[in-house]
Every structure is written in C-alpha cells, then in structure tokens.
Design a binder for these strands. Structure first.
Lengths: 226, 226, 226, 226
DNA sequence: TATGAATGAGTCTTCATTCAT
DNA sequence: GATGAATGAAGACTCATTCAT
C-alpha cells in the first residue's frame, strides 16, 4: 500500500491502470474536448447554470454533438464526477495482499506523510472536478449515495485499519478511532483547501508545511509538553 | 469577548443587537414568509435551480410579491446570505475595549472551548443558510469577495491576536500563526461538519467530543506525549 | 330520448347543460384563442407536426402563455379531444327515465332519422376536432382506451337496446344485433364522411339523402323487394 | 374482371404483374429491410413521430444508408404508400376487354361477394400500410390528390359501370348511382374495419358475416318486407 | 400593497440530413 | 455501396420579471 500512497510523479499511475477503462482512452478528440469544456463551464458556472450551448462552443463542436456522446446534460456531469469519485476512493481500496499492511509504514507519521502528499497531488490534478463534485453532491442523490457509501464509509474503514494498527503498537492514543480519523482527515483537508482554494497564490513550501501539519496532528500545538 | 464567544442560550443576542437593522424586524409577515421559504428552497434545490414561483407558493404569496421586496432573485439570495455572513464574522470583530483580551481567557483551551461551542451553536441555528452560503460563494463574486475579505482575513486577524497572545505566554508553539490557525480552524470545522452534515443522526455527546477535540488540538494524537 | 336525438337548432343544448363544466365558460379570451388556434393547427398539420410556436402565433399570445394553461402540448390536445369525445358519446348515455325508451320512437326509421341528423349536425359543428380525434386515437393509449371503452362499447350497448326493442316488435330482422348495428352505423358514418369530408362542396339535399339512406338501411338496394 | 376480384390465394398476382416495377424486385436486401422497418415504425408511431434512426436500427442498417435509397424521409413514406395506393385501385382499373363486364357476374350479389372478399384479403395483407395511408393522406397534398383523383373518382367510375349494368337488368333500385355506391362501399368498409381494426381478436366467421352483409345491402334490415 | 396573467429569452434535447472515410 | 459521426435548425418547455388591476 505504500506504493499507491506514495507521492511520486507517477502517483496516479495505479489509478490509470485500474480505471483506464472508460477514461480518456478510446475517446475521440471531440469527446475529450467536450469533457474538458464541460469541466471548465461546470466549475465556473455550476452545473445548473451551465449551458450546453456554451460547453459546445468552448469545445468547438455543435450542440447536438454533445448529445451523441451523453444522452443528457446530467449524464455529462456524472461521466465527469463519477470516475473521479472512484479515483478519490481508489488509493484506499487497493487490495493489500498478504500482511503488506503491517510492513507498509514504519510509523503513523510516515502514513500521514504519504496520505497528505498523495491526496494533495490528487486534488491539484483534479481540482476543478473536485470543485464540481463538492458543489453538486447535495443536489444529486446518486452522487450523494455514492459519496456517503463508497467514499465516506470505505475510506473510514481503511484508515481505521491503519489507526487500529498503530494504536496497538502504542504509537497513538487509545481513544475511539472515529474521532482520531476525523481529526486527521479534517486537518489534512483543511491544509489542502487552504493550499489550493483559499490561498493558491501564496508561496508554499509544501514539504515544510506538511511536516508541520504532521507535527500538529501527532503532538498538537501546545508548547513543550514536558 | 468571553461573553460573545460564550455558548449561552442568548449566544446570538449580541448579533441581534448589532445586526438587527434589516433583519426580521420591521418586516411584514409576508416578507418573513418569503425569506423562510427562500431559505428552504435554496437549500433544497440550490440557488440556480430554485424557482421563484416555488418560493412564492411555499411562502403563500403571489409570484409578483417577491419582486416588491427584492428587485431580483439574486437580491433575495444576497439578503439571506449577506447578513448571515456578517453574523458569521460578528463574534470576532466585537470591539474589545481596553485590554479585555488579555483577561478574556485563562488558557488557549478555554478559548478553544468557547470558540467551538459558540460556532457549533451558530452553525446549528443557521444550518440551511450556511449551506446556501457555501454553495453559492464560488458563483457570486460579491459573496466571494465579502467572504475572502471580511471573513477569512478578519477572522484570521482576530484569532491571530489570541494566538500571538498565548504564544507569548508560552502556552503554544512558537511557529507561524497561519499554520496554527489553519490547524485549529480545520479541526473545528471538521467536527462541526461531521456533527451536523455527515452524521447528524448519530448520538453525540458534544461535551465529551469537544473535550477530546481540544485535547487533540493541544497535544495531538500521539500516545504518551512525554 | 327523442329530445336529445332531435336535430333541432338547439341540438346540443343538452350537451351544454351537461358538459358545460370546463367548457368555454370560465375561460379567459386568451385561453379560448389558444384552443381555437390549436384546433386549427392540429387539424391542419397533425398533432406531432404542430408547433406550439405556431399555435401561439395564431392565437396572438406568447408561447409561454400556452403553458400557463396547459402543462404540456399533450395536455392541450387532450383538453380539446377529451370533452369532444364525451360529447360524441353523450346523446347515447342520457338516462332514459322510466320506460321512456319504448315510447321514444314510433319506428326504427324514426330512430334512424333522428340519429343520422343529430350526428351529422354534431359532426359538422365539431368537424376539425373529430378529424384530430380520429387522427390521434391510434397514437395515444389514453384516447384509444377512452374511445374503445366509452364510445364503442357504450354506444353499442345503447343502440343495442333500441335494436332489440324493434326486433321484438318484429320491425327488424332477427339476426345478431352486432351485425345490425355495424351495418347501420357504417352506412351512417359513410354518409357523414362523404358529406363533410370527401365531397363537402357538392350540393347536398340532406333531407332527401337521409330518406334514401334510411330506405337503403331498411330495405336494401334490391329492386322490387317483394 | 371476375379474376382480379376473386379472393383466391393468388389474389394479388395481378398486382405483382402490374406493379412489380419498383416493387420488391431489383431491391437489395438492405432496401427491403428498410422498407419493412419503415412500415413498422410509421404504423406504430405515425410518420411525423417516426425517427429515421429507429427505422435504420430496426432495419439493421446505418442511418445514412436510408438516404442512399430515399432522398428524404418523405420519399420513404411515398415509396411505401404510393404503390399500395395503386394496388388499392388496381382491381378496378383492369381493362375489361370487350363486353366482358356483362358476363362477369351473374348478379349484384356475386359482384358484392367478390368485392368484399377481395378487399378484405387485400386489407388484411396490407393492413399496416393502409393504416399509414389513412393517417397520412390528410397531411400530404400529393397523397391526397392521388387518393381523390385516382382512387375515389376512378373506383367510383368503375363501380358505377357495374351498378348501371345491374340497374338496367332491373336487379337494383333505380336511384342515383352515387348513393348506391356510397352505401355499398360504406357497408363494406365498415365490415372490414370492424373485422381488422376494432375487433380483430373476436372469432369471425367471414363467410357467414359476408353473406349477412350482402343480404343487408340487398334487402335491408327490415323484417319480412312482404 | 398585493396580485397573477403574460411575457419571451433562454434551455435542453431531437432528428433529418450530409459527407468524409 | 455503406457507414456513422457530425451538424444545426427547430421544438417543447421553464422561469425571472413586468405591469395593469
């Protein structure tokens, strides 16, 4: 699992291997143009305010062409956010053969480091789509369900395994896992959102910030707890 | 400041005093009905997909009546989220006469406790409006600006004052305030969102959870912090 | 029943009394204009090829106005043909109190005479709508069912009563009623359609033609029927 | 003429001989498939609501292929109903060499019998196309003209010849031929439509029904006219 | 003040037809 | 010949907004 949570340049290579089906392979240039234009317009205007005519124009195709590839505007939305939601989940559901898990990370710090870097890279690469996803989840039951059932519960389950593992090793507090996970994930998401959404133009030294964040998560912000 | 960050029953009393102008005073019953209906429909459908006709129907007024009070649909939106955005900010911008701040909280823990309780109560009371606000901020420059300039920067500035205060007292780590604040706020928002949005139906013991959260923020999740 | 099958100038007065609800009373001038325009365009182009924009234009209203009165184009169609279908049926389902039936007509000829005149007048008055009705019945299950169940079977049932009555009186042949009715109705419809549809411009002496038709129905076309 | 009005198994043999040009000879399998699919879809949906894409799919050809054989959708329609309209007319326009007519039928009853059987068989074989034809005649002037000029007037003319013949023989009433023909044809069409369209699932004894129908046409429905 | 009928621009979607392959 | 991707005009329908009452 260390591999698919690594933050190498090919971070998402596993994803491509796993999810390539239906992705931008086997797609015509026009279809790719439609998808990219749709991502842009959905992100800028929001799904409901996005006009298929504008998407078509940005994609350089006739409006009717969109509907050859996607039966409805909603299909277009789902074909964008659906696979990304799966990719969001992917690194957590990779099968860990044998007891790979045990040897995966030497410490919770290492796990955190890989997790944060990996998801930061993922968010950077899929920024607009994630934006669309977050905006639209409340209004599309299918998305909402997929998110709650697949993402929230499965990610929780997987991280839970790690957390319990390190709890048993005595590395982290023996308190309920949900609270631990919520805290960890909140801090991570908070960093990523500030980094990419709130202050994208600030100069960031990611490595330092992540080290600091991990220190916060592990030891808090209280001074010298002696 | 202790007062306006307290979580008493009258938590928002200061808000009423400060922001009453334009609020539900001096409003006709019809206008109040319109606002309430609009909040419901905006929250359920999203601004763009909300029909003014549905709002009118739910409010029990004629379609045209809405436009007597609000020139456009967008005005209606802004009249809902604008004041709430101010209220979101309010507890942080209350003038602290003299050096009230110094004596406000005995410890950062106390400050955190008041902050979390207060904002949780606020979020609970204004749940739907906050939902609308978060949904619409990306699509309305006026909201976006108000949020970035008023909320983000001013809240940051105020919390920053507290943080520096406790940093000088040697209670918290001498690291850049932005990271400290981001971490604190992320953990707080993460709790509130889980509490109200992701798992509202779970049984929550808020007092215990908040205590645990503060312990996390202060001392992290590592076991045996000696 | 002799009354409502009479062919007086006020032939349809009973219908107005019975079916006035929802008819052109309580309608705004615009709604009436829409209905009339729709009848014209549906009859001329057929339902599927009729454009709501053309109906709006002919009615002198905005296109959106149509949809204030009729949720869909199909609703508009049904609101036109539905009531007419009921009126088509009406003269046959009037309650005949007591044994009114027995005394209604002195002979089958009298009955035929009233029937033909009455339905000819009705067809003349509702020519376009009947045209639309016939065109659209095959493609709208709701119309089809209404037609088969209400019209065909109920009209059959009512005429059947008359036929059996005169059969018992020894006026008409003792053969299965369905064949008798089919024959009578076919001859009647054939006359009406030739009269109004195939050769509307020919000069017609309706009274003579109807007398001849009744003679055919009663005694056939063979010469010297001794 | 007795031949082409007979109801033998090869009833339509004359048609094939006469109208084979442009019919299913010299046609590629694809073209035949297109025609058959078009008949099905036109009959089911109506011409205006039929999608060429659906026809192509049902025919197992590409959408573009249809337009290789038929320049427009309307051409496709006309190529279906046009020849059938001719066939509808055919048995009446066969040249009767010499005075064949005189010896054709011994009686008007015989003529009627052949006519009814023949057209019933024809209608059964061409049910869907006749359905399409009747539906579309009002909306296509070319069809309308062809129908009014070719069918109505020519069929009238031919039958008229028979009628006059039997009138002179003293077999049928000496009243205007149009009324006689209209009556005869109405009764015939009424039977065929009931038989095939209104109650196709009922058990029919065609021979008996036809005999009864002829009796009605010849002698009416009045009991014992002595 | 409040109404709600009326508007018409704008939306998504369909589909006959074309044309490069 | 045969394909099917691409087109774009046209269609049904929605909805924020206006205005006479």
């Amino acid at each position: 699992m260390a591999e698919h949570l690594s933050a190498d340049h090919n971070t998402e290579s596993w994803a491509l291997e796993l999810l390539a089906l239906g992705d931008e392979e086997k797609m015509t240039p026009k279809q790719i143009a439609i998808l990219q234009a749709a991502v842009d317009v959905f992100a800028e205007k929001g799904y409901a305010s996005a006009a298929t005519s504008e998407i078509a124009q940005k994609a350089g195709v006739a409006e009717g062409t969109i509907f050859r590839y996607y039966k409805t505007k909603k299909d277009l939305l789902l074909s964008i956010v659906g696979p990304t939601m799966s990719k969001l989940l992917a690194p957590f559901v990779i099968r860990n053969f044998g007891n790979l898990l045990d040897r995966s990370f030497d410490s919770y710090e290492d796990f955190l480091h890989a997790l944060i870097r990996n998801r930061l890279d993922f968010a950077r690469k899929n920024f607009k789509i994630l934006q669309i996803l977050i905006q639209e989840i409340p209004f599309h039951p299918s998305l909402r369900n997929q998110f709650m059932e697949d993402i929230v519960s499965k990610v929780f389950e997987r991280i839970s395994a790690h957390v319990e593992h390190f709890k048993q090793k005595g590395e982290i507090l023996d308190v309920p896992a949900p609270a631990l996970i919520r805290f960890t994930v909140s801090a991570t998401i908070g960093y990523i959102m500030t980094r990419l959404l709130l202050q994208p133009d600030r100069e960031w030294n990611d490595e330092e910030e992540i080290e600091l964040l991990i220190r916060f998560i592990m030891h808090g912000i209280a001074a010298d707890p002696k």
